[in-house]
Design a protein around this nucleic acid. Structure first.
Lengths: 204, 204
DNA sequence: TGTACATCAGTGAACGCGCGTTCACTGATGTAC
DNA sequence: TGTACATCAGTGAACGCGCGTTCACTGATGTAC
């Protein structure tokens, strides 16, 4: 026999009706991610997240010391998703230079698909908590960039050169993403392909 | 004989003591630019600009319909300065591909020297006024980019290709600028040079 | 040269807004006996 | 199995904040006669 809150007369506090029992922390993170994905939040407010979960604003403080801490968790989660998208793209393209380019396209497409989340991840003026959480993270996206560049480089390339090339590649995709997000360049799948595929990583 | 407000007993309204007589509009724009340059304004507020000029906030509405209009003027002014900096760099380097690279470096250095202003120029979610003012402008920066790419391209290059290459170059410098502004890449003059100079515009 | 008047660039007070955060509280839950 | 109690995740009310904008006003300026 199944027993659940609907069939039996159990007292349920209002908040429990909205987020699953006892997991407000996870519910807040989920809600925040959902709002960032929808992107209708130009900038996310703590009260708005609480509201969308169906809980009072002060309740958030049971699970996070302050707003910055909640945003930091969202940023880390977003960074992970970005890395996963890039790895998937790289593998689907079979690695190598094609795979690296595919990862670059995935970076731009992720940004366009998740504008607010992407801005949060890369966002400036990071709170201390934010910076600490992200920097301690050594993201998958970053690792993919470094290892790809190292693999594709001519053997014996100077580490400074590897670094410069990695930063150049990152700048390339990041700039394209930002300019398209900011409506300075018309967002356009074909243009993404032509900008990214046309580059030469190691001109001789 | 010199006559001025200090030596003669002329009535001077408080505001006139701060901005030169009759030119509050220009004074507001100057103040806004100065605050953007100092960059201590994470985001500029209308009240703050008025305060810094020594005038009440409502006074601004004698000269601008609303805050967005004032910011739009600041953005246009900033865009002009960016273009001037790039043209100067291009000419100092004697034009050609060297000149084009110099203009690229000038773009990044301008961003690092004027973070808040640069963000305003490129800023997302532009108000209608903002977008209209900027788009009607066909900035010098943009013209420099297009003409340089056209000049440096092999003759007969397809216009779509010209466009893609221009957007790639823009993405390059813009990405580097943003990542350095956002502290994702350590701001570093030497790195700017290596990232920009090492690229190949027209790999064969 | 002096006077009456319209203009209009400024003023201070007030509006409503949503924010992050603090506070004292309540009431459901789990534990000890 | 029942009772007393501590815990602690939630509550609503309130705080102070700075914002953009509106309002009725004032007082200096320039013009017409």
């Amino acid at each position: 026999m199944m027993i659940d809150a609907n069939s039996v007369n159990i007292k349920i506090s209002p908040a429990e009706r909205r987020y699953h029992h006892g997991d407000l922390r996870a519910a807040l993170i989920d809600a925040g991610m959902r709002m960032l994905e929808r992107g209708d939040a130009d900038q996310l407010s703590l009260r708005e997240i609480a509201r969308s979960v169906g809980v009072s604003a002060p309740a958030v403080y049971r699970h996070f010391p302050d707003k910055a801490a909640l945003l930091a968790v969202l940023a880390v989660e977003g960074l992970e998703r970005l890395g996963e998208a890039q790895v998937a793209a790289l593998e689907a393209a079979g690695g190598g230079e094609d795979g690296f380019n595919a990862a670059g396209r995935a970076y731009v497409r992720f940004a366009l698909a998740n504008p607010a989340l992407f801005r949060l991840i890369m966002g400036h003026a990071p709170s201390d908590a934010h910076a600490a959480a992200l920097s301690g993270h050594a993201s998958q996206s970053m690792r993919l960039l470094r290892t790809s560049v190292a693999e594709l480089a001519p053997p014996g390339t100077h580490p400074d050169m590897l670094h410069a090339v990695a930063m150049r590649a990152w700048s390339q995709v990041h700039g394209l993403a930002m300019l398209m997000l900011d409506n300075q360049i018309e967002p356009n799948d074909a243009l993404i392909d032509r900008v990214i595929d046309g580059r030469e990583m190691w001109p001789d």
